[in-house]
Design a protein around this nucleic acid. Sequence first.
DNA 1: CTATGTCCTTGACCTAAGTCAAGGAATCTG
DNA 2: CAGATTCCTTGACTTAGGTCAAGGACATAG
Lengths: 217, 217
Amino acid sequence: MTICAPLDSQELAQLSALMTPVELDAGAPLFDEGETARNVFNVTSGTIKVYKLLPDGRRQVTGFLFPGDFLGLAKQATYAFSAEAVTASTVCRFSRDKLEALMQRLPKIEQRLLSIASNELVVAQEQMLLLGRKTAREKVASFLLMLLKRARQHGRSGDTVTVTMSRNDIGDYLGLTTETVSRTFTQLKQNGIIQLLPSHQVRLARRDALEEIAGGF
Amino acid sequence: MTICAPLDSQELAQLSALMTPVELDAGAPLFDEGETARNVFNVTSGTIKVYKLLPDGRRQVTGFLFPGDFLGLAKQATYAFSAEAVTASTVCRFSRDKLEALMQRLPKIEQRLLSIASNELVVAQEQMLLLGRKTAREKVASFLLMLLKRARQHGRSGDTVTVTMSRNDIGDYLGLTTETVSRTFTQLKQNGIIQLLPSHQVRLARRDALEEIAGGF
DNA sequence: CTATGTCCTTGACCTAAGTCAAGGAATCTG
DNA sequence: CAGATTCCTTGACTTAGGTCAAGGACATAG
């Protein structure tokens, strides 16, 4: 998807020859930090989380990936983080060797990857601001707005998002505990800013208030 | 420097034709977040900090840049962060337009930039782990080891680093207050793990202990 | 070399978020 | 569709780090 955007049909054919579709159950690992980085992946359905661990098990989720997102594009010998399916998902697997060979012939792909990486860096810096300087309420508001933005990018409209990940995963993404995430959801609900609906749906009833709380995004 | 590594002398000449050296006093701003991103910079001496602000003035320093480092390479119309000299510094300025034109002709530069961006992403993820999940003590230990690693990269040996930035800047980098940073330095000193020497020098007397505290780097 | 500002340190106290614990609501599984 | 997990919520209490305040140590400038 995203990687393919600037290619013509013949180039696309060359690229798809390298792809292998992979089906993942919820909770299935894609790869672990430190493993030799043989593949690059493109998410086609579901939600993937990427995370790093400290020796004692503390976890930082550095991102949630949705259809169209890339992972594993580091120019390193080993993966810098672990990746695991949050929900049942499908991804396209590319061999890194073959992709790099193809990149020699199709510099557009390289340009596209640079563009993706630059964008990820911008997102990473916003996440550092969130982790280092925002309160729990501000973090959760920012998170919900991020989900809404992603839902919009995927053509969904309306003011409702599907929170596919657990409170624990959200906590590990925002630098909070499960309990604090839960309490903050409850508090936002009691303030009439969000509504908690069945099957992981959250309605952002007062998006203006969320934007205000999130602090300028 | 880093960008030039893979170029031959003729290519280097083309690149240096685009460079303008800029001298900065301590505290001088390089650019502000949101400004149109006309230039890319390469640090040649001194220390630069890059940061993001919340509307109420809370600050997150997303990185410190040392000689050889790049900044502003985002593929966006505006800078995603502000940049300011910590100490008196010199940087090389490149016009983005001209650099992009040159990149069309010298794909090696693009490859190099992708490699730099990928590496920055890895560093950013480590910083997220630090900000979201490490204690004050672990954060400060990680910070000192980062400075040591950078000093090593610049050919300095020994177990002493120069802390060119203020306690306040360090706090804004680690998601802590000035006071907590100061107390943590004092505590590490009292434990015999570091020594605070004159003129911003810190001796990492027990590097093994710092590595242990930092949590596996 | 003395004054003046900035930075650093330390102390006393406070609070946001973490921890521990226990019920309750979903959601899988046979 | 009962039983078993797993996940979510809430309450009571603790604590790491923040806040406020005040000296002290460096710098830089006159």
